[in-house]
Amino acid sequence: MNCFRTLSLFHLVALAVNAAVITENGFPILWDQVSSQLSDLPQVDKVVTINPWNYLHRMSLYRILLGSTNKYMASMGSSEADSPFWGLPLQLGWKLRSGRLVDPSGATTCGQEGDPMCISAKSWWSCVNHYISVIPFLAAVGKGVIGDGLLQVQMQAPAESAEEYCTSFANCSATHPDLMTKWEEFFETLKNVSTLEISDFEKRDQILGAYWAGQQQSLSTASSSCKEKMSAYSSPEASFANSWMNSADYVAAAYFQSSMNNSVLFLSPLPSRLLKEGDSPPNIADLSAEENHALYIFDWMNRMNKILLGSLVKMWRSAMCSDKAREKGRELLKDLVLNPKFAVSTFVSILTEMTRSC
């Protein structure tokens, strides 16, 4: 285990030299400019109105969510940076800096110079993010985790495609009942488990299991709801987007703890720009070796799973049959994505053995 920590630290340092910009002053992009309290946002007659199509407002959802759930996250570690929610704002910052929140059609200047904080409702990436930002936030409000039930929250609809996005707890519960229920269950689990007389390891395992169940339901819903927006992108970008979505099957089954450090480690090698026609990893000249390797691995995992008719993901889920197996799975994912010398054949060999051991 000590050797693994040394390897992870080595890669973290290497990625900092040659990688996408994920943080500013150790926090998500523009973290110091976003609201940390629900009461800081615009409100009239105890109704808080939030514009999730503005980057600062959407990032505020995450900062408020983190602050409101920290008291339940003691089992995650000794630092507030250990909360699994850190992966979400860091991911949103990467999407901003890499140009994935702009209008892909070019019909508007949303997200471009002159309107840099605009999040386009036409963007596939921003559409998917709606389901892992607005939805869990409204569920947290509904369960009293945010606001203690004293304030109502209303999301602004985008100027275009307004009918495609829900805007309140009641509205989202009506349009996506299974999804909202899954996130409500997570917040209920979070509150209940934090009070149980069990080990921190057991608490962490239960909380992360419920967290990733919510994430998976969000991505499943987004996959169908945002599908048509994929046509605006190049073939390589669309392929990467699909691979990125499918990678969630692996991190979810392994109960990945998306803390600050872990998330920076995995997000840093993601492509720092939109992919264009002709881009073919691992040989994209203007992307770093780390970005090329990550793109190649994401593509390999997706292609191999298709070739095996879904068997690779099924094997992975079967192998994650216990807390110890999931811990080993998390280490295996880090090796696969972050260590270029780690052969994919080794991954398959270890996975096969893990499946037999369950």
Rank of each mutant, 00 (worst) to 15 (best):
H11T: 08
E24P: 04
E24T: 07
S36P: 00
P28M: 03
I22Y: 01
I22N: 02
E24L: 02
Q37W: 10
A16L: 11
F27M: 15
D32R: 10
A14C: 12
I29F: 12
S35Y: 06
V13M: 12
N18L: 06
L38H: 08
S8V: 10
L30Y: 11
L9V: 05
E24W: 03
V17H: 09
Q33S: 15
S8T: 07
W31D: 13
I22L: 03
S36N: 08
D32W: 00
N2G: 08
A14D: 14
A14L: 12
L30M: 08
S8I: 06
F27K: 15
S36W: 03
W31C: 03
V21I: 14
R5L: 12
V13L: 15
F27I: 02
A14H: 09
V17W: 07
W31Q: 02
A20H: 06
E24V: 08
D32T: 09
F4P: 00
L38F: 09
N25F: 06
A14F: 02
D32E: 13
N18A: 12
A14W: 06
N25G: 02
Q37E: 15
L9S: 14
S8D: 00
P28E: 05
A14R: 14
H11Y: 13
V13K: 11
V21F: 00
F10M: 08
I22S: 01
